[in-house]
């Protein structure tokens, strides 16, 4: 649905230019939720703003629903933008318009007639759970409600794609979850493709099908969540399962074992202990709901150097578990 190829963008004339995006390529499949995660200044906003051309690239292209949007300008670009909804960190609602008026804005721009506008707005407000607030002004709403209006406004024109620029960063954790769930719902019900950027792993965990890690303007890793979880050494997976740094361990071996999907309930520890007579100590474990599935990672300490445990490790891998030897490899 969205194909981003080799986007490059620098800012600043005069002084040293900031390379906000450096050869970024991504592919967002139709109907999926794709999360781009990165630290402040990584270039996330710059990237997402390229998708509706609020920002023009130095080079590279963005294709949305088969149209190269980077080539468009004027009226053609405006028409293309009407197919791409966007929601913002600070909601960006018009203070002088009611909830209803805000949602109608996009429809007025498109030129929908008033009766149709009202009908469509009522439907969409119902969908986002704000049917009762149509006549309120933004100043009378909570942050979560404001973002619901933002979502309604973005959806009113029936876009194919929704862009979300840190849509939940200004919200408390509980409201964040309810907004994320709403995004997931509309993604499913309207078959809407969502590209979101965030600096919070929670967001990726809760609703994303795929993710990319952006660092200093470059994509360092990307893939579907399922794929990332079973990818050895994946930094995104490491973030998904926050086990912390590997502790210094004298002569022992430390392994991280990742369970997901069908392997989620393998009796690993008892297997190691009983079948191989190994004294296993558990250093940490994280179990997460990721994209609706249970997945987890356990960090175990095994006595002695890794080569002593080659056989049991191979056995676990044969069962489809991801086993990463974090320490003790070289011994």
């Amino acid at each position: 649905m969205i194909t981003i190829s080799s986007l490059t963008k620098s800012f600043g004339s005069g002084g040293p230019a900031v390379r906000a995006l450096d050869d970024v390529s991504l592919e967002v499949a139709d109907g999926t939720i794709f999360g781009v995660i990165g630290q402040s200044g990584a270039g996330k906003s710059t990237l997402i703003r390229m998708v509706n051309q609020l920002e023009r690239p130095d080079s590279g292209s963005v294709t949305v629903a088969g149209r190269n949007i980077t080539e468009l300008s004027g009226r053609e670009l405006r028409l293309a933008r009407q197919q791409i909804g966007m929601i913002f960190q600070h909601f960006n609602l018009l203070n002088h318009r009611t909830v209803q008026g805000n949602v109608e804005l996009g429809l007025e721009i498109i030129g929908t007639d008033p009766a149709e506008r009202r009908r469509r707005t009522a439907d969409i407000l119902e969908l986002v759970g704000l049917g009762a607030k149509a006549r309120s002004y933004p100043a009378e709403l909570s942050g979560g409600q404001k973002q619901r209006v933002g979502i309604a406004r973005a959806l009113a024109g029936n876009p194919r794609v929704l862009l979300s620029d840190e849509a939940t960063s200004a919200l408390d954790p509980e409201t964040t979850r309810s907004i994320l769930d709403l995004i997931k719902t509309i993604n499913r019900e309207l078959n809407l493709t969502v590209l979101l950027i965030t600096h919070e792993m929670e967001v990726v965990k809760r609703i994303c099908d795929s993710a990319a890690l952006l660092e200093r303007g470059r994509v360092v890793e990307q893939g579907s969540i399922v794929e990332l979880i079973s990818r050895p050494g994946s930094r995104l997976a490491g973030e998904l399962f926050p086990l912390g740094p590997v502790p210094d361990s004298n002569a022992n071996t430390i392994v991280d074992i990742t369970f997901s999907g069908g392997t989620a309930d393998s009796p690993v520890i008892s297997q190691l202990a009983r079948r191989h007579g190994i004294d296993v100590s558990i250093l940490g474990a994280v179990i997460e709901h990721i994209g609706g599935n249970q997945a987890g990672r356990t960090r175990l300490e095994l006595p002695g150097p890794a080569h002593l445990h080659a056989l049991p490790i191979a056995e676990l891998r044969a069962q489809g578990l991801l086993v990463e030897v974090m320490r003790g490899q070289a011994a």
């Binding site: 405006r78 933008r81 600070h90 609602l93 996009g106 721009i109 024109g157």
Partner: peptide, 20 residues
């Protein structure tokens, strides 16, 4: 941000002046 929101909805410059 309000101008950007209108831009993202495909508004023309005149629409941005008149509506935002």
């Amino acid at each position: 941000g309000l101008v950007e929101a209108a831009d993202s909805l495909g508004a023309s410059s005149w629409q941005i002046v008149a509506k935002v």
